[in-house]
Design a binder for these strands. Structure first.
Length: 887
RNA sequence: GGGCGCUUAGCUCAGGGGUAGAGCACCAUCCUGACGCGAUGGGGGUCGCAGGUUCAAAUCCUGCAGCGCCCACCA
């Protein structure tokens, strides 16, 4: 493909690129064996705690985890280095319905359902599965370098955790927050369970709207209603119209006849009917529609049910009995048409609610359900966010959270599933209930001795709501709980702000007496380059470990994700190219370190620093600033900024400039020993410190390199986070090196424009004000080396000679002799620069000629503009001088 | 129907009132002793559109459009 000439790759081991695969697992093992990730109560240090958003036991690591875990791990490592007692607690979720779907798919392969096995056998099967596969994701998490406290791994159905969940239920029950009864809920006819409103996946589908005539019971025309579910006509108990709808005013209170079943039902008036929709008349089916259910209840209407739990027509529906709901829909529609009752049928686009897990169309269905009253729980949870006790990052999610909390509905917490926390309620034969961990000997109300435990289990989110405290030993006030709770940061995705975050806040306040965490960081959603969500079912899922094992390594994956983890965006588009960039960066660090190590022979950091040269002072100053910038960025959750700052510093400053400048000294034979020591100290301290700054993002590489440096400590994991050193900030050195760099760039640019080979020697001439001239003179060797000059002339006589090309940068006039053959190129360059300078000058002059600018703009802006004008005039003059001398 | 986010170079994204930035890609040159997963130089954008505020707008305000996400019981 590429026509680029490539230098033959060096084969010896020393020159091979960095190989993360050879390093990462080894280093991770080392950290584990040294117990760095385990934290225990230590009152002398402040804790920093993160609770991992628990992956499902059925899950495997995907790109979302990779990002989410990278952020958590970098926060944990960073805080540990800062001296916190950092603890990151891992665990997995039994994921009741999610696991059921997986298990039952397995069973289906054997032609079985969970009912063929029965509750006990099924649970046995699930536990076996959990033991066998439930820990696989832990290995994947470790491969990413995540420093979790593995001694604290928790599974939501571990005995202690199980008890804590039951305790939560019992406390809510005793407080009167739990209620039970027949309610209309979202029912999945496949999983045979209820599903909470948040677990409904709405999808747009094409369907039809049937306009069906209901004749008047008195033989009149009656009304025409519009429905997309003709089968539910069998369960109609009324027709409702808006009370102010003149079209139907005369019908209110009269009766119409429900087709097919020929039932006489009243026409009622209700505000909830939208007169603008369809015909403005709404059939009321309290058994199969939530709105109708509410209207029916208010009007004292009966509830008829024509679908069973499988979504099939009930036995009493005559010829439709046992028909699937969708078949029944067609059948009823056909029969209505045959009866001449369908006025028309329109195509209709509708939102269909699907089961989030199995994608079956959900049915509004009435069953015995357990609910948790939310109003009281929500109040303090709203307060803590309003007052800033808990802060969301990015901040915009605060509004999303509050909006949901302020309109919160009661929570359907029961599921007709088996895998999970069974509701600790015992029913007696007389319809009484008793709550408790154990079955009471007799019913406290009627004394009956036959008690059966409630069959339903708790919503999986009910149990995960207790995660931040149930993992620490609650309800016992354990030392762990006292010490680590409230936790510090929750890192999670926006998709579970309501499902999980909100509920943890409510539960934490209710049960543990305080917020579960003080900061919530909502990480972006990882997308592919087309901007589509990564998902297995879409075929757009990417396995992060595939990339890792392909040779990029975990560090590259981590850095690539961190580099794009900005608060400005809600999505993060990921493509393999991004790994190439970071892989190259890793290699850059690797090689730079090799160079540094090579020149560190005999280095003794205790011998003391200095005397610094301007380049030492410059890089030390830059490094000092970087410490602050990176720390601030992490502090404010700007992870991309932290990564970018480090990338730029390492590559564009440390490698491109400092190392190149240092070489000039290091390769001199006559370098004084103390100067060598100063350079060594700078190389060593800046690299070593930069590695520490990089470590939270790229733990393995930094450890490997850090330990290869002389006088490194036991491990970078437990090394201290660099402290910003204000004393090292050196404006003068930055300005001076800035000038040197500008001169070098100017010469290089001219060389290139003249078409000179990089190997060709040049002899630039420099002219500058006295101070600058002294600076240039003092660093002539640097300039010569970086511009590949045989010699550098300084002073008034040196520049502006005929037959030269030149420019002005930072007040320095830089010129180069032009060979006869290169005159045309030189002229072209000068003309280009000149016209650019001319345009700039014109704009500046125009600006300064505008009285409103001069009078209204801040004085320093005007002064800056004046300075620029003067500079441009000089520049224009100098350039035209050169151009004239070339003709 | 509401709400939120995004729209800057071919791609991925920073920036956020005072002369448009990075990485990759592209072009040119280079087998320079840490690195070709490299070095140096360079080309490329009227910052989605339209108004407004301002001496000055990519940046603030309003509206619009496109894309994406979320909430909501419209049959």
């Amino acid at each position: 493909m590429s026509t680029r000439r490539q230098r033959p790759a060096a084969q010896d081991a020393e020159h091979r690129p960095y190989d993360p695969l050879a390093v990462e697992p080894r280093r991770y093992q080392e950290w584990l064996s040294r117990g760095y990730f385990h934290a225990s109560v230590d009152p002398s240090r402040k804790p920093f705690t993160i609770m991992m958003p628990l992956p499902n036991i059925t899950g495997t690591l995907h790109m979302g985890h990779a990002l989410n875990h990278t952020i958590q791990d970098l926060l944990t490592r960073w805080r540990r280095m800062q001296g916190y007692n950092a603890m990151w607690l891992p665990g997995t979720d039994h994921a009741s319905i999610g696991t059921h779907v997986v298990m039952e798919r397995e069973l289906a392969k054997q032609g079985k359902t969970r009912f063929d096995l029965g509750r006990e056998k099924f649970l046995e099967f699930a536990w076996q599965w959990k033991e066998k596969y439930g820990g696989l994701i832990y290995n994947q998490i470790r491969r990413m370098g995540s420093g979790c406290d593995w001694d604290r791994v928790t599974f939501t159905m571990d005995p202690g955790y199980y008890d804590a969940v039951i305790e939560c239920f019992l406390r809510l029950y005793r407080k009167g927050y739990i209620y039970y009864g027949k309610r209309m809920i979202n029912w999945c006819p496949k999983d045979l369970t209820s599903v909470s409103d948040l677990e409904v996946d709405y999808q747009t589908q094409q369907s039809h709207l049937w306009y069906v005539r209901y004749r008047g019971a008195d033989g009149g025309d009656g009304v025409v209603i519009a429905t997309q579910r003709p089968e539910t006509i069998l369960a109609d108990v009324a027709v409702a119209v808006h009370p102010a709808d003149a079209r139907y005013a005369s019908l209110i209170g009269r009766e119409v006849v429900v087709p097919i079943v020929n039932r006489r039902v009243p026409v009622i008036a209700d505000e909830r009917v939208d007169p603008a929709f369809g015909t403005g008349a709404l059939k009321i089916t309290p058994g199969h529609d939530p709105t109708d259910n509410a209207i029916g209840a208010d009007h004292g209407l009966p509830v008829l049910v024509i679908l069973d739990e499988h979504g099939r027509m009930t036995a009493d529906t005559g010829r439709y009995a046992a028909m699937d709901r969708f078949m029944a829909r067609e059948a009823v529609a056909r029969d209505l048409e045959d009866a001449g009752l369908v006025e028309r049928k329109e195509p209709y686009t509708t939102n269909v609610g699907l089961c989030d897990r199995c994608k079956t169309v959900l049915e509004p269905y009435i069953t015995d359900q357990w609910f948790c009253r939310m109003a009281e729980l929500a109040k303090p949870a709203i307060e803590v966010v309003r007052t800033g006790r808990i802060r969301f990052h990015p901040e915009r999610w605060t509004g999303v959270y509050l909006n949901w909390m302020e309109n919160i509905h009661d929570w359907n917490i029961s599921r007709r599933l088996w895998w999970g926390h069974r509701i600790p309620i015992y029913h007696c034969g007389n319809g009484h209930m008793a709550a408790g961990r154990e079955a009471p000997a007799r019913c406290p109300k009627c004394g009956a001795t036959e008690l059966r435990q409630e069959e339903q289990i708790l919503d999986t989110w009910f149990s995960s709501a207790a995660w931040p405290f149930a993992t620490l030993g609650w309800p016992s006030q354990t030392p762990d709980l006292t010490y680590f709770y409230p936790t510090s940061v929750l890192v999670t995705g926006r998709d579970i702000i309501f499902l999980w975050v909100a509920r943890m806040i409510m539960f934490g306040l209710e049960f543990a007496g305080d917020v579960p965490f003080t900061d919530v960081y909502i990480n972006p959603t990882v997308m592919n380059l087309e901007g589509r969500r990564m998902s297995k079912s879409l075929g757009t899922g990417l396995d992060p470990l595939d990339y890792v094992e392909q040779g990029y390594g975990a560090d590259a994956m981590r850095f690539a994700l961190t580099l794009r983890c900005s608060q400005g965006q809600q999505d993060l588009r990921f493509g393999e190219k991004m790994l190439d960039d970071v892989r190259n960066f890793n290699n850059k660090i690797w090689n730079a370190s090799r160079f540094v190590r090579m020149h560190l022979e005999g280095f003794d950091p205790s011998a003391g620093p200095g005397p610094w040269s301007v380049i030492d002072r410059w890089i030390r100053s830059r490094y000092a600033r970087i410490i602050g910038a990176v720390t601030d960025a992490l502090e404010s959750f700007d992870f991309d900024k932290a990564a970018r700052t480090l990338y730029d510093f390492v590559w564009s400053e440390f490698c491109d400039w400092y190392l190149e400048l240092a070489k000039v000294d290091l390769y001199r034979d006559d370098l004084p020993a103390e100067r060598r020591r100063a350079i060594q100290h700078t190389l060593w301290s800046v690299l070593e410190g930069t590695l520490r700054l990089l470590h939270p993002i790229m733990p393995h590489l930094t450890e490997e390199v850090w330990q290869s440096l002389p006088h490194a400590g036991e491990s970078i994991v437990i090394a201290a986070w660099p402290r910003p050193d204000d004393a090292a900030v050196d404006e003068a050195a930055e300005t001076q090196v800035g000038t040197l760099m500008a001169v070098v760039r100017a010469v290089r640019s001219m060389r290139a424009d003249l078409g000179l080979a990089p190997t060709a020697r040049v002899a630039p001439s420099l002219r500058a004000p006295r101070d600058t001239q002294a600076l240039l003179a003092a660093h002539r060797d640097y300039l010569a080396a970086l511009t590949r000059a045989s010699q550098i002339s300084l002073g008034d006589g040196a520049a502006g000679q005929p037959g030269t090309v030149g420019t002005v940068v930072e007040g320095v006039e830089v010129s180069l002799r032009v060979a006869e053959a290169d005159r045309e190129r030189a002229r072209k360059r000068l003309q280009g620069e000149l016209s650019a300078a001319h345009a700039d000058l014109e704009r500046t002059t125009r600006k300064l000629a505008d009285p409103s600018f001069v009078s209204r703009a801040p004085a320093e802006v005007v002064a800056e503009e004046r300075r620029r004008e003067a500079e441009l005039r000089v520049r224009e003059q100098v350039l035209s001088g050169y151009l004239a001398a070339l003709r």
